[in-house]
Design a protein around this nucleic acid. Sequence first.
DNA 1: GAATCACGCATTTTT
DNA 2: TGCGTGATTC
Length: 680
Amino acid sequence: MQAYSEILRTMDIYREIDRLNPRQREAALHGEGPLLVLAGAGSGKTRVITMRTAYLIHTGVPAGSVLAVTFTNKAAREMKGRVQHMVKTGNGSPVISTFHSLCLRILRREIEVLGYRKDFTIYDTSEQVSLLRNILSEIKFYDKSFKAEALLERISRTKNSFASQNDDADPIEEASAMIYPKYLDALKSMNALDFDDLLLLTLRLFREYPEILRKYRERFRYLMVDEYQDTNRVQYDFIKLMAGERRNLCVVGDDDQSIYGWRGADIGNILDFEKDFPGTVTVRLEQNYRSFGHILNAANGVIRNNARRMEKSLWTEKGDGPKVNIFKAADTEDEAEWIIDRVSLIKDERNIRFEDVAIIYRANNFSRPFEEALRRKRIPYSVVGGTSYFERTEIKDLAAYLKIIANPSDGLSLMRAANVPKRGLGATALGVIADFARTNSIGLLDAFGGASGIPGIGKKAAASAEKFFDLIRHYRQMFDSGREMGKTLEALINEINYRDYVLGLYKTPEAAFGRMENIAGFVESITHYESTEQAPSLQGFLETVALTDLIEEEEEKGGRGVTLISFHSSKGLEFPVVFIAGTEEDMLPHKKSADTDEGIEEERRLFYVGITRAMNELYITYAQNRTKYGKSEPSFPSRFLEEIPEEAARKLDRFEEMDPDQEKAYVKKLYANLMAKLGD
DNA sequence: GAATCACGCATTTTT
DNA sequence: TGCGTGATTC
C-alpha cells in the first residue's frame, strides 16, 4: 500500500517536472552548488522552488535538511501547502519558514550564550516606539522635532545595514547616536528583542559561536531563499554563513521587483550574487503565464530604462491581447469616476466579478476618491494595507498582561498592564516604583511586589501595586501549569473587569461592540492556538501574535469586491483587470524619491510591479489637476508613461475607440448611474 | 482625567 | 484638507 502510493508520488514528480518549461526544469533539477533563479513576474517561481524541493527529496536528500526561507507568512504557508502535495511526509519534512520565525526558533534554543534568558519577549513596532518615547522623556529630550518613529527608522536601518552611527552631523543622526545605546540597554534589561534583533542576534550567535553555526550547517544542507532581491545586509550575511563551504544555496528573486530599498533591502545582493558565489548557475525565467503580450511589452519597455539590473525580458505564448489603455482625466474626482464607471462597464460586458478588479496607487491616501466613488455607485470594495490594523488597543492591552506573565523582566508590558484598567497607579506612583527598582537594581515586577517598603509611595498605591504583583504571579502559575489557556485568559479578563473598563471608554454599548469583538477574537485565537499546537505554551502563543498578523486570515476571506491597493502591497498578486491611477510626476516617481538615480529606478520598479499585476486588461490613468491637501494644482504625466512603447498602448478618450454598441451600453450605464444617484 | 483646541504634517510597511 | 499629537483648560 505504502509502496504503491510512493510510486504514485514518484510518477507525480516526473509528470510535474515534465510540465515545466525548459528554464524552469533546469532550475528545478539543479543539484549542488549556488543557483540564481531570476524569476520574472508571473513566471511560475513558486512552482519551481516547490518542484526543486520535492525533487531534491526524491533523489534522496533527507527532507529535514532542506531549508526554504521566505519573507512573509503567506509565502511560507503557500509553499508548505504545495510541498506537502509533492513530498511524502513522515521522514521529516523540509523546514519552510520566514526569516524571523527561523531565527526565533534558533534563538529560543541558543540565546542563553548571548546573555538573554530563553523566555525573552518580542517587541513589535508599536512597542519599540513606546520604548523610545520612554527613553526620550527619561533623558528629558525635549526637542519635539524628533519623532520616535523617525528615530526608530534610523535605528532599524543601523541594525540592518551595520551603518555607522554618526557619519554626518544630521540632527536625527546625532540624536540616534545618543539614544541608540540606551535603546539597546533597555531592550536587554527587559529581556526583550525587537524584530531586527531576531536576525541580528542569530547572526551574532553564528559569528561568535562557530560550534553552533556548525550544528545548523549540518542540519540544513540545502538552502533556498525566496524574494532574494528583498534581503538586507544582515540577511545576506546570515545566508552566506549558513551556506558555508558547501554553498548549496538557491536564491530566487527578481531584481526588477526590488521595491523595499527604503527599508534596507539591498538590490546589490541579487545583482552581485554571481560574483559573491563564483560558479553560480544562473537561470532566467522569462516566460510569463499571467499577462497578455501588450501588457508585457509595456512592462519591458519601462523597466529597460533602469541601469542597475540584470538583463531580461518577459514574453508570453498567450498572444498580444488588448492594448494598454492610457486615460487622461481632468482632475482627481474625474479620474476616480471614470475608473469606477469603467469598472461597472467592464463588469457587465466581460462578465467578470468585482473581485477581479484592482485599483493600484502610490500612496494609501489615494484610496479615498475611489472609495467615495465606489460607495456612490454601491459597488463593494476592500482597501488593502495601511498599518492601522495592528493597533488594536484591546489586543495590545491583553497581550501586555500575557507578556509580563510570560517574561517577568518585560517592564514595558508591565507598565502598560499596570495602568489598564486604572487601578490607582498613576504616573507618579509608577515613577517612584521604577526609580526604586533602578537604583536598587531589582526587577520592576519585584519592586511592585515590595511596594509598601518603597519610601515616598502612598499607602493605597502600594497596596494596589502589590495586589497587581499577586495577580501576575497567580496567572503565571495558571498559565504555567494549566492546559486551558483560553479559559485562563477569560478568567483574567473577568478578574480585572476588562470588559467593563472598555465599555466605560465608550458612550454607548454599540460603539464598544467592535472592541468586544476584538476581545472575544483574542480569546478565541488563544483557544485555537492551544487546540492546534502539539506543545502549546503561553510563550508560543505570544510568538504567534508577534510574528503573524492575527487578522490575516479573516482579511483574506473578507476581502470582497474591488481591491484598492498600493503598489507595494500588490506585489505577488494578480488581477484580470488592473487600473493604475495617479501616474503623475511627484507621485510616481514620488517627489521624495526623485532626487537620486537609485530613487528613480526604484520608483520605476514600482510601476513595473503594478503593470505586471494585470492579466488581461490594464488601464493607466493620470489627472491634469490633482487635489493635494485641499488645494487643486496642475499635475503632469509621469515620465514613465513615455517609456511605454507606442505600439503597446492606446490613448483612451471617453467615447473614442468604443464601438457603437459599447458606447450605447456606456451611455445606458451613465443614465442608470444618474438614476441611482437621484435615488439616494 | 477628560474635553478642547491649535498645530504640524502628509510614501511605500514583508516581520 | 483632515488627522493625530501635545498642550491647555476646567
